[in-house]
Design a protein around this nucleic acid. Structure first.
Lengths: 248, 248
DNA sequence: AAGGGGGCTTGATCTGAATCAAGGCTGAAT
DNA sequence: ATTCAGCCTTGATTCAGATCAAGCCCCCTT
């Protein structure tokens, strides 16, 4: 019977990544049930703003499909992206009631949301949810620090190569079937969004993408479809340590 | 009796910030006792390296006194600071066995360490430790994102002003007695370390500090002692939103 | 088919910070 | 007292990326 509940829950929320990443690895039946009761979905169109920085935010959420960005903006309009949310990533901060960043859908977006109050109560009673969330937050912190090295010390070319490598890698982990010969993916960002990610202008992004193409590091099909014939070659351009020590 | 244990523990570890920040806010007696049993102290001299990136790291720790930095280094020597640890800050990552960054003592440093294994076991059994750690990690992530805006979009002058404001603020929160007239503090970093923090060269740091001095935003006494006659004036130079919305 | 707009590219020029270079200051060691 | 080393400042020059500017491409609308 208990096992049956679990399967039912699983069917109800089979596509909900929070099940898998934040909660489910060691979930018990009644915890799933609790999550089922408080969750709801929201959809946004490409370009839509999910929340403005400073707005009241009474839910936490997990990306189901699509891509969202976190950005910070200065009064004079300078923008810096500070987070890129892919499917299964978590947004929102238990214990804070206002959004600290603008959250924008860069593609059509579906999020699985949980009202903050009940989610927090659930966290109290099910310790490994907090632990899973801690793990995810520590991963994000590591990514942020990698990003800081990129922003502070890398050249424009290295920045572009790094971003392409990051997207290629995350993309590959989502669609496990990757041909050995070459990696292929669609850029989910405009040149301007790439610039906001990298701390550059869109013109510089465009020039450096062209340069990588001219040098044979990548091939372009249209403006957005990227082919990386040799991933190691791309990695050489990033300036990062060659040994992919990012997975220990 | 239970209450007595707590006081005893408190005396044994009166100066240990993890007690206050990571663990203690809702601690119970036996948790404190557990912490007491697995903790130990380590001291480092100014300039000493605590851990090299990639080294095995079998403890987590909390800064008791002094200042430490986290830095990342590229093969060709470019360096970027990615963390600045002041007293009560936490280092180390439950669930990872190798250090991801160089940790260096910039002043004489005392850390309160916990062997990772027992600490992790303790986390399992005492849920609000994980919760407190999550809160601290989320704070750090926010700081990292603020830092990303600085690295990606601020001018050299804004970077310097921002760093001075950050240090002034954190300093003020440590020694609560701050004169209304002006804020005064010692820079805990060399020009080169400031440069590594800000993604600049040491020459540019020096020039911009001189410029802020010439413009009356700060006064220098020696190379390290800073006087900020008007904190609001300094804040104007940072490029940040004027409303100090960083504390909600 | 014509028009228009959003996203992108490419060229010309400018500029803020890096780089290269030469001292200066201060405190510790001889 | 002198020397030395580490840290800092300041000047001259260079250069990577920003800014300004023009036009292209592609898709959508009418």
């Amino acid at each position: 019977m208990a096992h049956h509940d679990m399967q039912t829950a699983s069917q109800q929320c089979g596509d909900c990544p929070i099940r898998h990443r934040a909660v489910c690895s060691r979930c018990e039946t009644d915890e799933l049930a609790k999550l089922e009761q408080i969750k709801f979905y929201r959809s946004y169109q490409a370009g839509q703003t999910v929340i403005w920085s400073g707005d009241r935010m009474d839910f936490v959420a997990s990306v189901v499909t699509g891509i969202a960005t976190l950005t910070q903006t200065m009064e004079d309009g300078r923008r810096q992206m500070v987070g890129l949310l892919l499917p299964s990533d978590f947004v929102g901060r238990p214990g804070r009631s206002t959004a600290a960043y603008d959250v924008t859908a860069t593609t059509d977006l579906v999020m699985c949301c949980f009202r903050k109050k009940p989610f927090e109560e659930m966290m109290q009673s099910t310790p490994h949810v907090a632990q899973r969330l801690l793990e995810m937050t520590l991963d994000e912190l590591d990514a942020a620090r990698e990003w800081m090295l990129l922003l502070g010390r890398k050249t424009a070319r290295e920045k572009i190569a790094s971003l392409l490598a990051i997207i290629a890698r995350r993309d590959a982990s989502l669609k496990p079937k990757t041909a050995k010969g070459g990696i292929t993916f669609d850029l989910p960002l405009t040149r301007e969004e790439m610039a906001d990610y990298l701390g550059l202008t869109l013109e510089t992004v465009s020039r450096q993408v062209s340069a990588l193409k001219k040098d044979g590091v990548i091939t372009l099909e249209g403006k957005r479809h990227i082919i990386v014939p040799d991933f190691d070659r791309l990695m050489e351009e990033t300036g990062d340590d060659s040994d992919g020590g990012y997975l220990n």
